[in-house]
Design a protein around this nucleic acid. Structure first.
Lengths: 320, 320
DNA sequence: ATGCCCAATGGGCATTTGCTTAGTCAGTGG
DNA sequence: CCACTGACTAAGCAAATGCCCATTGGGCAT
């Protein structure tokens, strides 16, 4: 395009946006778009695809699917929740994260659009990672994004499902990766780590976060903490014997949602869970295997909000 | 079913919403949806279509261009326009010409790239001058560029915002500068001028132009015609008293877009305006002060295309 | 019971879309 | 100077989609 000579990057995205609008809003065919934009059909198709992949087009379903609304209402009723969102399940792939990721991203964006500075605290995990991938690019340097837990594994490598760094990148906010391991070697080392100035800063930010978003981990042999190597099978077995039902930012809790007093939790370097907080603390989780963990977290008021899907919600309600 | 009461309507809409969700959010194909919902593919397609037609799926474009496209669509809807382009305003300099100049230049280049000979008729003014400056250099001797109005001021000097000569220079096309003043001394002189062979040629070319591009002048004390000395303040006052709302290539029209029958217009030497033409006649204009003039030109179908910016488009739509 | 009406259904077909291959062209750097 | 890169276009194909139309079957009046 002729206008390309000024800001190739911007212009390309602009054209993608134009193509996306013509396609999704005006209902043009890609051929028409190609003609209107003066490019080949293939380019038009690329532009439309780019508008989607760059998350320029947001599809929202403006119909409360009766089922989902009922489930959300029931969950709010049964557990101490202030917000609850249930998205439809894909019957073929009920553990698909896309749906809850979109819902969670919409929630994050609502906070991020605020002109006043906000603090958003994030956990880690696949669900949050998927959430971040659904965020639009935006420019909000006024906000701070802080990690609830360290991103260093015991062997010194970075954790795989860190969400804070890509999130800060996408939305142009400042971020505070905590220079901490997930687990300290012992209580002694933990004290030393927490005494560091940057760590104390981060923890202080977490404590006053306007929005906290976390994943929920189950405590069985398919647990993320196990798969990702934070725990050895023997430790897992030990924790389960001690009544462990789930974990949030590595804090292991029992089936009533009480953080267990045990050796493991004494080594957890993560920010303390803001129990029964007045500000939103949202769990983002789906899956058959996580149901007990989610229920425990809700019961114990470790979170006050939940984003999940239809199937998981059904199972949560079906529990005795 | 989700609810105890049996409401076929609701259920059907719910299914539509579900199908829409699976299609647009989860990215299923209609075949998969059909399988998952246990209906035929055709029914799935009907459900998806219903989700759209019932406005259950809302598509939003998360990009500044989205708003511009919306505004353009509204303008096309409200006025008899076949093409309309709205470019983002620079919030700091909402009257900046660069944006619309780039858009207008892109439009010109699309025509200029045609291998068949084309005739492009150009008006004058700052906007068109800025447009020409955005044109890439190219070599298209097959086209003809003709001026809609003379480039000689009453004192014999050339008009400052001529666009045809630099345009022809940039794109390597033949051009037809009209050896005419902007205003004849009187109707008598006008007849004599228009009787000249080269003038008649030019006017004939204007009449069959494939693309006509003009600026729009307001009729107030900041008007270009006044600033550039084509009109004296007294004449301007007179015209305004006669209901003048704007001018295009010196033809002064009222707020319904009718060229006023007055002494001034009887002296105008410019090519006649191709009212309600079948070929594109594009106005290129921005600015708070031009809004009434633009609206009049659109209403009266003096042009069938508009290139403007976001702020001006908003104001045009906000007018009663 | 019979026939009719109408909405919903699914088959079939033309169009649209996503993607691949091959070729072109401008800019880049050795 | 030329090979290389990257991005584009053209052509074409298989899958996905949109839509027409004949069919079905339930509800309703006769």
């Amino acid at each position: 395009m002729s206008t390309g000579r000024f800001t190739p990057e911007t212009t390309r995205l602009d054209d993608a946006a134009r193509a996306g609008w013509l396609y999704y809003v005006a209902g043009n065919t890609q051929d028409e778009i190609a003609r209107k934009l003066g490019v080949s059909r293939q380019s038009a198709q690329r532009l439309v695809a780019m508008a989607v992949s760059e998350r320029l087009v947001k599809v929202r379903l403006d119909h409360p699917i009766g089922r989902c609304m009922d489930l959300a209402a029931t969950l709010c009723d049964r557990f101490p929740l202030t917000t609850c969102e249930v998205v439809p399940s894909d019957p073929g792939a009920p553990e698909l994260l896309t749906g809850i990721a979109i819902a969670a991203a919409a929630l994050l964006e609502k906070t991020l659009r605020a002109p006043e500075p906000r603090i958003i605290a994030m956990g880690t995990g696949r669900a949050l990672r998927a959430t971040v991938e659904q965020l639009s690019r935006m420019e909000c340097p006024q906000h701070k994004i802080v990690s609830l837990l360290g991103n260093v594994m015991s062997d010194g490598s970075a954790t795989p499902y860190n969400a804070v760094i890509p999130m800060a990148d996408r939305v142009g906010a400042r971020h505070y990766p905590v220079p901490l391991p997930v687990l300290a070697r012992d209580a002694e080392e933990l004290r030393a780590l927490h005494a560091q100035e940057p760590v104390r800063n981060s923890l202080a930010l977490c404590a006053e976060a306007d929005l906290t978003m976390v994943g929920v981990g189950q405590m069985d042999m398919s647990a993320p903490v196990l798969v990702d190597g934070f725990l050895r099978p023997a430790e897992m077995a030990e924790l389960r014997a001690a009544g462990a039902a789930g974990e949030i930012t590595s804090w292991v809790f029992d089936d009533r949602g009480h953080v267990i007093d045990c050796a493991h939790n004494r080594r957890v370097a993560s920010a303390p869970l803001p129990r029964a907080a007045d500000r939103p603390v949202i769990a983002v989780a789906v899956g058959e295997s996580k149901i007990k963990a989610i229920r425990a977290a809700l019961t114990g008021h470790l979170v006050n909000g939940l984003i999940t899907n239809e199937l998981t919600a059904e199972r949560l309600i079906a529990l005795p």
